[in-house]
């Protein structure tokens, strides 16, 4: 109990507190176009990492569900999708806010914007498909199969396809992690803890969602 169980939540709180304070006060290298708005790197970009990690986890649990047929895995998979959708929406909204100042318009049909929007639409469809079916067994299996296919689409939509078009997003020229490598090392002092901290927050929110769902299921089972 205690520290053993909660260490990653404490780490999450500490990293995010550091991100909020250091992200605002860090000395920024001179970037003629972005200027101080590069600070959004610590808040907007990690939203997408959380979304991708959540969707990846949900795909892993979807496969586990298909192979082991345990109700538990289906619930985990579904809760990860919901968490991912929330963070994806945050990423989309903050991205549009940033773009309306930086690119002059909230929507400029940038390949990455379109890719991200399609990703979100695919997962909205997942939620609708899942909720439109009753009966745990069939619902779970169809949702899991759909989940695996949708994650297979997310990678090309977010990484591969935008890499082949000119984009307003920096660092999207073919190499996804190039952006991180070419980052000024001062920015990394915050961007890497931020990435870890936000991802842990995603897991924390998933944890709360999953445990609530479990209690609900228990209540339904007992009723």
């Amino acid at each position: 109990m205690g520290l053993k169980k909660y260490w990653w939540k404490i780490l999450c709180a500490a990293l995010l507190m550091y991100t909020v304070v250091a992200g605002m006060l860090l000395e920024i290298p001179y970037l003629p176009k972005l200027k101080e708005s590069i600070r959004n790197l610590f808040y907007h970009v990690p939203m997408w990492y959380v979304m991708l990690v959540s969707f990846l986890m949900s795909m892993i649990y979807a496969i586990l569900y298909l192979s082991k047929e345990e109700q538990k895995y289906d619930t985990i998979s579904n809760e990860f999708v919901t968490t991912g959708i929330w963070f994806g929406c945050f990423g989309m909204i903050t991205g549009m806010e940033w773009a309306s100042i930086q690119w002059g318009s909230p929507w400029s049909n940038d390949p990455k914007q379109i890719g991200a929007a399609l990703t979100l639409l695919i997962y909205f469809a997942y939620a609708i498909l899942r909720n439109s079916m009753a009966g745990n067994d069939k619902q779970g299996r169809i949702a899991a199969v759909y989940n695996v296919f949708s994650f297979a689409l997310v990678i090309p939509l977010v990484y591969l396809v935008p890499a082949h078009f000119a984009s307003l997003h920096p660092g999207s020229d073919n190499k996804p992690f190039e952006a991180l490598k070419t980052q000024d090392h001062h920015l990394k002092y915050v961007s890497i803890p931020a990435m870890i901290g936000w991802t842990l927050l995603g897991f924390w929110i998933f944890d709360i969602r999953y445990r609530t769902k479990k209690l609900q299921q228990q209540k339904e089972f007992n009723a």
Binding site: K9, A13, L16, M17, V20, V21, M24, I208, R211, L215
Partner: peptide, 30 residues
């Protein structure tokens, strides 16, 4: 800017407190 950082960290600390409270309630229910 320090005022803004103060405001931001206060809000964020509040959100974290909310998470901790939720955590405790869930623990109790479980």
């Amino acid at each position: 800017i320090y005022l803004v950082v103060l405001v931001l960290s206060t809000i964020f600390a509040g959100i974290l407190t909310m998470l901790v409270v939720m955590e405790r309630k869930l623990n109790k229910l479980e």
